[in-house]
Simulated scan of single mutants.
Amino acid sequence: MGFLTRWAFAFVLLALTFNPTPYNYIQWVRDYGGTNLSVAVLLGLVLAIGYIIYLRATLRSIGAGGMVLVLAVVGALIWVLHDLGVLRLNNSSLNVWLGVLALSVVLGIGLSWSHVRRALSGQSDVDDVDD
């Protein structure tokens, strides 16, 4: 599973949770969660499992400082694109999608970082050893 696959799953996880369209978990819970409480709880738990997997792997591989650094690089890239006139930031829906994209890049890099480090250095990360 390559970086693009890991990033795509992170993007889908974040977009399913929240996006500027009416088709997301948060909006669905606001509108229908009271009448479908069991489904809302089940879907919330499934999303929580996805976040736990991604956040735990990201925190273990690049840490909180690495997450901030990757987010800063993505933010600087957006800033450069805006300064060059490639990107306009006056559309609030686009801004939300950019936020989802930026966070998914952080999670995708976090989940992939051990593979990148092994490819660059030839050294494996071993956090847990099974006997």
Rank of each mutant, 00 (worst) to 15 (best):
V116A: 14
L103W: 08
N91S: 15
L103A: 11
L111A: 14
R118V: 15
A102L: 12
G110N: 09
L84Q: 09
G99V: 06
W113M: 15
G108V: 06
H82Y: 08
L94I: 14
A102N: 07
G85E: 03
L89D: 04
S93T: 02
L111R: 11
V105Q: 01
L89E: 08
S121Y: 09
L94R: 05
R88C: 05
V96R: 00
L87Q: 06
L81C: 10
A102F: 09
G110Y: 11
A102R: 00
R118L: 15
V105N: 01
W97P: 10
G110T: 07
L87I: 11
N95I: 02
G85Q: 00
L107E: 02
L87F: 11
G85S: 01
L84I: 09
L98V: 05
L103N: 08
N95E: 14
L107A: 14
A102K: 05
L94W: 06
I109E: 05
N91F: 07
N95C: 07
L103T: 02
L111M: 15
L101G: 13
L111I: 13
W113G: 14
I109C: 12
N91H: 03
V106L: 09
H115A: 15
L89A: 08
V96Q: 04
G99L: 07
S121K: 01
H115W: 13
L120I: 09
L84Y: 05
G110E: 02
N95M: 14
V96G: 00
L120T: 04
S92P: 07
A102Q: 05
L89H: 00
G99F: 05
R118P: 11
L89Q: 06
L98P: 11
V100N: 11
S121N: 08
V105G: 05
R117T: 14
L103Y: 07
L94V: 10
N90Q: 13
G110D: 12
R88K: 10
L103D: 00
W113T: 13
S92C: 04
G99S: 06
L103I: 02
L87N: 06
L81R: 01
L89R: 02
W97Y: 05
L89Y: 03
G110V: 05
S104F: 09
G110S: 12
R88E: 13
G99M: 11
V100A: 10
G99K: 01
D83V: 05
A102G: 13
H82C: 08
S92K: 00
S121T: 15
H115P: 03
L107Y: 02
L111Y: 11
L103Q: 05
L107N: 06
G110A: 11
L98Q: 01
S104Q: 07
S93F: 04
D83Q: 13
G85C: 03
A119H: 04
L107P: 01
L89V: 12
L94Y: 02
V96W: 07
L81G: 12
S121W: 02
G110M: 11
S92A: 13
L87M: 10
S112I: 01
G108I: 13
V96Y: 04
L107T: 08
